[in-house]
Nucleic acid binder design. Sequence first.
DNA 1: TGGTACATGTAACATGTTACATGATTAG
DNA 2: CTAATCATGTAACATGTTACATGTACCA
Lengths: 182, 182
Amino acid sequence: MTTFKLNSTAASLLGFLHERPMAGWDLLETAQQRIGNFWSLTQSQVYRELAAMAEAGLIEAGERGRRERQPYTLTEAGRAAFQDWLRQEPGPETIRIPLLLTMAFGSHLPPDRLAAILEHQRTRHSERLRSYEQRQSAIPPAYREANPAAVATLDLGIAYERAFINWLDQLPASIRGGDAAA
Amino acid sequence: MTTFKLNSTAASLLGFLHERPMAGWDLLETAQQRIGNFWSLTQSQVYRELAAMAEAGLIEAGERGRRERQPYTLTEAGRAAFQDWLRQEPGPETIRIPLLLTMAFGSHLPPDRLAAILEHQRTRHSERLRSYEQRQSAIPPAYREANPAAVATLDLGIAYERAFINWLDQLPASIRGGDAAA
DNA sequence: TGGTACATGTAACATGTTACATGATTAG
DNA sequence: CTAATCATGTAACATGTTACATGTACCA
């Protein structure tokens, strides 16, 4: 009964299994769509966690379907472990921003190279913002009302991207470049 | 000559070694102060990377000083590897926000529990914002002018925390709670 | 002289990443 | 019939985390 020690990735898989039995493949797709935005996971991890959780009795393998598809069902123990995990105070963010490392060591870089990097980042973040905004506008009102908290996660992504782009734009001209060229 | 494949953590240590020879202990302190904000590392990692880089000839151990202190010096190969790394396009952020997982599965949580979690997070982020702001106001103008890019990293932290708190405050009352009690 | 901060190092394990091998099914 | 997509699984390795063992020097 000592509830199995879940990591966040495994717990998320259990979360999705509340909706219906799914195989690794479905779970990966689902996770990437629904939480991939702020929680990355790979195919390898999914199969590893599924195997471990099946071993621990949190989920049960059903009969193989088409294409060797291996569906898993939540067990009572799995539900309990998930509830346990979900009620914990969420841990601290892990935020690792390679660009900031580059900037921290910016004095070892020629100004124009740093400026080029910043320009490139601006493009990438603008694109991401645009894609988030599109996704946001595509959310059906019914889903929004049924899952307000889940929908709100996208809002934070948008707020982050806007803050990031705004920060880039406010950077002193001395590091953003454009000065030197003129 | 095939330049050693550096990870960002190891590269950062090389970055700090440009300033002066340092031992693991100093490097850990320095890194936590200067990049800890957006790049976490542990004592274990520092010693591991130092050992690997010494092995690869990127740094050289000097004579032990007081308290078994083991200083390392950059080699030419180390400088080259660092320059190589620094010029790369910085990779994508790793952002993992456990709170958003909790929210994504918020429908499995009693509303008051979710509201309590959000409240708690608000406190933590406010404190962090305050500490960042204090650090920002304590930066000597001379340092700011000499290292504008390094200083700007703190600005992004502040922008992020403000965006986060603002997002929390804009969350619909239905999930923030305060409704039910009234 | 005893506690605390300094300092290094290792062991064990958890998590994340990349690459590959294998086979099933479908669409053209 | 064959290329593409679906689907699972494993191996090898990189990185990150936690805990512990050891010893040094300072300072109250």
